[in-house]
Structure formats: C-alpha cells, structure tokens
Design a protein around this nucleic acid. Structure first.
Lengths: 197, 197
DNA sequence: TGTACATCAGTGAACGCGCGTTCACTGATGTAC
DNA sequence: TGTACATCAGTGAACGCGCGTTCACTGATGTAC
C-alpha cells in the first residue's frame, strides 16, 4: 500500500511519542522495540523504515523531550511564573506519579551517562541551554557562579524527584518532595543574598 | 571438591563485591550474571549456590553498599568532619569519575524505582536512616522540617553528581560539581539562618 | 478516460545473541567405622 | 591408622525467552502513457 501524504511523518511522530512516554516511564533499556512498535499500532519491521537504530530513536526522543520542556518553561515565564513557581510545580506528587509525562532528565539522566558519546553530546547541548535559562532567572551573581548555582538547583530538583520516586513509603516520599520545595526556595533566596556579602 | 571452612562465605563476599562495583559502574540491567561470575573467577552455575535470584543479589548489594556508606559518614564525623566537609568530599571529580566505587544512591536510585516492592522497601529503610543522619547534622530547625531539608540536600548531591556524570563536556561537568558545592554550603547555612526568622 | 507500472510504508518471519535460570554431574575434603 | 562413604561448592551445557536487526514480500496509491 502507498499511503497518503504526511502519513509517514505522522507515523514517525507516533513512534516518537510512544517511545518518549515509555522510555521515561520504564527506562530505555526496559523498553523493547517489538513491544514499542506494537504500542504504536505497527509491527516490529516498520521501525527501520523510520529510524536507523534504537540509539537514534533515543537521541531523537531526548532532543524532542528536552526541547518541549524548555518551551514549556519559557511559556510559563511569559505568563509571569517565577523560578520559585517552577520549583513548586516540579516537586509535586502528580509529577512524581507520572514519570512518563514528566521531566526527561529526572527519568533518564543516570541511563544517559552509560550511552554512546553522540547521545551524551546531544544531551549536554540541550542541558546547557536549560541550565543557562535557569541561571538567567536567578536573582543575582556573576555569570560563572550563576551557571553553577543553576546546575545545582536543577540537580536538586532532579535528585529529589528521583528519591521521591524510588522510596516506597508514601509519607516519606511526600516529605522529600515538600523538603525539596522548601530547600529550593531557600536556596534561590540564599543565592540572592550572597550577592550582598 | 569440598572446600575449607569459610571459603563459601569468602566466595559469596567476592560475588557481592564484584556485583557492587559493576552495578554502580554500569547499572544493574547492563550487568549479566554470566559475565559477573566470570569476573568473580567462577562459572555461571555457581551463582545459585549463593543467591536465589539476581533480584536477591541486587537487594544484598544495596543494603551492603548503603550500610558501608553510612559507616563511612559516621566515621568521618567522629574524626571531626562537618556536613560541609561531606558535601565538598561528595561532589569531587574523583568521585564523578569512579562511580563503581562511589555513592550507590547516585548510581542506582533511578533504576531502583523500577524494581519490585521488596527491593524498594529495603532501599527506603536504609535511605531513611541516611536522611535522618544528615538531618541530625543540620544546624537547626524542628525535626520534621529538618528531615525534608536533609532529603533535599541529599537529593541535590545525588542529582548534581548524576548531571556531572551524564554531561560529556568536561568544563561544564566541573562547573556543575563546583556549583553543587557552593549551593550545598549556601543551603546548609540558609537553613541555619531560617531558624532565626 | 483507462490501463500498466513504479513506489514505498508496513508486514511478519527469521537471524544470532545474551539473558536469567536449571540441573546432572564432579571431585576434594570431612566424617564414620 | 586405613578405608568407605556423604557432603556440597563449583562446573558447564542446556532451557526458553526476548532482544536489536534484517529482509523478502505485500498491496494501495500516484504517475506515465
């Protein structure tokens, strides 16, 4: 069968979206291509019509997910959201319980460290933009220090969300999330004050 | 062959140590039992003389590694190390570059979230002790708030180390580590001050 | 307008491979007599 | 003290399975004449 114009792009996007959710929800290595294609309503063989390898899919998913995330942050800022709002929004039970729709970094950063250089380089590029965006929203400090501070703040959000997800005690998990919000906001304010030292 | 007394325990410990390093260095799912046993100087079949399943090995490795880690922290404190020293020691290029000998939480927390309840429960138990130890070393605050603060501080250390490991640009990675130290110390001090608010 | 052909997204079986796990077996040593 | 036997840590081949990847094939549609 030969398909309508744009159908191929649509199918490709469907595979990407399915992979993006499943990779974040279960981890890259836990998701097999045959099952993934079944979820996308296709058979295994069709995968290679759209991607060269699983690794290429991982790369496209990463870039796509990180770009969407950044767009969402920029949009939120345009609507008046502050960095503190972003922290409060990030460390939420809803986000903790829906990793497949949430931050790709929190879900995949540990696994990415073991992926080929090409994949890590793409991740690095996008994460640098992310960190710089956060840095630009920090209240004070010189450019170099701000970048480090922003990375640490982002690392705190990522690490705290991961801890909250791994822990099987619901009360402790909630406490971790709440602590992350308090500490995150305290950190932003502390870094602001540091300028005055 | 029948072996000398204590040989079995010794072999078991060798498997545990090998697994502990390889799990942290490569991730649990990337390590196969046959290769692991080869590294321990044995053949695949001997694995089940010592462990019921790979999952049981994961659990023992986790408990063992976390206990060792806590012992090290307690010992460091006994020698006069402060919480700020611990942060400085944790976010180090040497630690970033030797995940197989470093923090099991940073290496495995994301993967643990996808493991069976029994494994997550063991992790939870130990991590709670960890968090409480950090909380006991925070300068101020009531018990509940301290626990959340400690979790966030720990999350920051874990997340920042993971970011530094995933990123393929050496300069950015160093910057992330340095930022983590600055922010970690600022956070500890900010939480101390908060008491005075 | 009607027919023959080229295109190519998608099918589904098959490839070699490594996975976790099982099991019949080995053979050096400790124990019983 | 010497011999027969029980023990059991470790061997290594085999199990079924799912992995990523390949490939000959299908068949609906667009294009050429």
């Amino acid at each position: 069968m030969r398909y309508e114009k744009g159908q191929k792009d649509q199918t490709r996007q469907r595979i990407l979206d399915t992979a993006s959710r499943r990779f974040r929800g279960e981890g890259v290595s836990a998701v097999g291509l045959a099952g993934l294609m079944r979820d996308a309503g296709l058979t295994n063989g069709a995968f290679y019509v759209h991607f060269e390898s699983k690794e290429q899919l991982v790369q496209e998913v990463l870039v796509d997910a990180l770009d969407r995330r950044l767009d969402a942050l920029v949009a939120a800022k345009a609507h008046g959201a502050t960095l503190e709002d972003a922290i409060r929004d990030y460390l939420t039970p809803a986000r903790r319980d829906a990793p497949d729709e949430s931050c790709p970094t929190a879900a995949l950063v540990a696994e990415i460290a073991h992926h080929p250089d090409a994949t890590r380089a793409l991740f690095t590029e996008r994460i640098a933009v992310f960190i710089d965006f956060i840095a630009a929203n920090l209240p004070a400090g010189d450019a170099g220090a701000r970048r480090g501070d922003a990375a640490a703040l982002f690392g705190m959000m990522v690490g705290t969300l991961q801890l909250a997800r791994a822990v099987s005690d619901a009360a402790l998990s909630d406490q971790i999330l709440a602590g992350g919000v308090v500490a995150g906001i305290a950190l932003v304010r502390a870094l602001a004050l540091q300028q005055g030292d």
